[in-house]
Simulated assay, not measured.
Amino acid sequence: MQTSLPAAKAEAKKQMGDAHDRAMPQEAPDWRGTSTPQAPSPREQATDQLYTDAKRRNVEGRSHMDKAELQRVLGRS
């Protein structure tokens, strides 16, 4: 049994539409409601800077030091 030309076109369009839908990228994820990373606090920034300075000066054990120890080793108050 042969299908009519309009029915064949409709079927072909339907099949191409399905393939087209599969090839199209999905919608971008919804980022609303997610928080962005916040900047480090002033205390963390200072500690990071102290660590960087200690690294430049090749201070041994710097990774195990807290802020006060880094300040003392670097001669800062």
Score class of each variant (00 low, 15 high):
46 A>S: 11
29 P>S: 05
32 R>S: 15
3 T>V: 14
63 S>E: 02
58 N>W: 07
23 A>L: 12
50 L>E: 02
49 Q>E: 14
54 A>D: 02
74 L>M: 10
41 S>E: 02
30 D>V: 11
62 R>E: 12
8 A>R: 04
48 D>A: 14
53 D>C: 01
25 P>Y: 12
17 G>W: 10
76 R>M: 08
43 R>H: 12
44 E>V: 13
60 E>S: 11
58 N>P: 03
77 S>D: 15
65 M>C: 01
20 H>A: 14
74 L>C: 08
34 T>M: 15
44 E>H: 10
19 A>C: 03
5 L>P: 05
34 T>F: 15
31 W>G: 10
10 A>I: 08
17 G>Q: 12
50 L>G: 00
59 V>S: 03
18 D>I: 11
61 G>L: 04
60 E>H: 07
68 A>Q: 05
53 D>E: 15
54 A>G: 07
60 E>A: 13
67 K>C: 03
36 T>E: 04
2 Q>A: 14
52 T>K: 14
8 A>H: 02
56 R>V: 07
65 M>S: 01
37 P>I: 05
38 Q>V: 12
19 A>P: 02
27 E>T: 02
56 R>H: 12
70 L>D: 01
3 T>R: 13
21 D>P: 00
13 K>E: 12
46 A>N: 13
70 L>F: 00
69 E>Q: 15
77 S>P: 03
51 Y>C: 09
57 R>C: 06
39 A>T: 06
61 G>W: 02
39 A>R: 07
62 R>K: 15
15 Q>D: 09
22 R>W: 02
5 L>M: 09
29 P>K: 04
52 T>V: 08
2 Q>M: 12
29 P>G: 01
58 N>S: 14
39 A>H: 05
53 D>Y: 01
40 P>H: 05
74 L>R: 07
9 K>A: 07
17 G>F: 06
68 A>C: 00
26 Q>Y: 03
3 T>K: 11
56 R>N: 13
56 R>T: 11
2 Q>E: 15
37 P>N: 08
77 S>K: 13
64 H>V: 01
56 R>G: 12
33 G>Q: 06
18 D>W: 05
40 P>W: 04
47 T>P: 01
69 E>T: 14
48 D>L: 08
